[in-house]
Design a protein around this nucleic acid. Structure first.
Lengths: 220, 220
DNA sequence: CCTACCGATCGGTAGG
DNA sequence: CCTACCGATCGGTAGG
């Protein structure tokens, strides 16, 4: 729930290149640098000079590897949504039980937001920075992703496994609490990613009305 | 959970001033215009010319009413946190029951995020755009606000009214799902602000392990 | 409240 | 991969 992920960078004149770094890694190195800078300074405030400095070249030299600054943002954001959708597909594949599918969906959601904090953070803050047609591409994938959770909850309702006042609000609340994880989670803190995922799985089940241990006054 | 709040503006050459608008309203009009533009285009992408166009003057003329563009952002963000804290103080004042205090705190949280979507949206996205000492001022108020929820949950645990694995995660999940409301809520949609607040109050109670109607299979 | 304008910044291109 | 540089933008000031 705090501000943007904070790190510090140095920006020497002609520096941090491992000399003989394979040209193939160039592009992914640039993407990683861009991601870090977009997350900490915002897309708009990050300059090509900034990105270049991290990977050890001048701003204009980046155009040998990428078409534009916007392309870097679009790749990050579309890749993020594709990964979330793929993870969700894998999560629900292993079982037919709607409770277990919800738990696994939420755990995958949390795991992604904890392990790929920067991607998730940028993905949620920079939607307005995307130009068309990339913005629509990302929004379409977001709708798809949201729909999976809503329909899962609706199925749980139909099977009388879940009980909520509104499947839409239940799904938003579950998704939004996961999104929040990208803002405050830090590896090496009080909880591991796995512990976090499990706890949020429990919380999601409680939201849809499934009984979980740790009820008030003991585990009855 | 969608993108930024979308509206459209016109930017005529010398336009939308009600002619004899009281000079006292000038400043608040400018703040409102800035808020809308910061929310839809981001702080960084909003120019003084943009803001001036909304209130019917040239960019440089704004400096007769405000000290800087940054001052507008800082006022919005500090004001947002102060209001949230004041609302929370009022919310817990009317009762001693920890369940009822949590419900009212969450309802106030949701109400603010639904009624002041733009403030909340900007308040959560533009923290990194704030310069010191304003950023620290806002972060200090955020910590205060978060602590209120965490300590309330801890009290509920001590009184055996609540049962959670981690008060910190429970409070983050509750706060974060409320923050999400600012992204997707639209007045005139499926739910009124009051209905929304009530439903989230229920969800929060479920998260902390308090039984609520609409359990699976009827209301038990 | 306006025009003129300063000083600085930035994405991207040219042409090695 | 670099330097030089274009064209455009922007916050803010000067001086009415």
């Amino acid at each position: 729930m705090s501000g943007s992920p904070g790190e510090t960078y140095e920006r020497p004149h002609r520096p941090p290149r491992p000399e003989g770094a394979p040209a193939a890694d160039r592009r992914s190195g640039i993407r990683e640098a861009a991601l870090r800078l977009f997350a900490t300074q915002s897309y708009r405030s990050t300059t090509m000079t900034d990105i270049g400095a991290v990977v050890g070249m001048r701003g204009p030299s980046l155009y040998k590897h990428v078409a534009s600054k916007h392309e870097l943002l679009a790749e990050i954001m579309i890749g993020t949504m594709e990964q979330l959708i793929a993870d969700n597909t894998a999560a629900v594949a292993g079982t037919d039980d709607v409770r277990e599918q919800l738990r696994r969906s939420v755990e995958a959601h949390i795991r992604y937001h904890a392990r790929h904090r920067l991607e998730a953070f940028v993905g949620n803050r920079e939607i307005g920075s995307l130009e068309q047609p990339d913005q629509d591409r990302v929004l379409a994938r977001r709708s798809d992703y949201e729909r999976r959770f809503r329909e899962l909850i609706e199925r749980g309702m139909a099977e009388r496994a879940f009980g909520v006042q509104s499947a839409r609000i239940a799904s938003y609340s579950i998704l939004d609490m996961g999104i929040g994880v990208a803002s405050w989670f830090r590896e090496g803190g009080e909880f591991t990613v796995d512990q976090l995922a499990y706890q949020y799985g429990d919380i999601a089940l409680r939201i849809v009305g499934v009984r979980t241990p740790d009820v008030p006054g003991g585990d009855q």
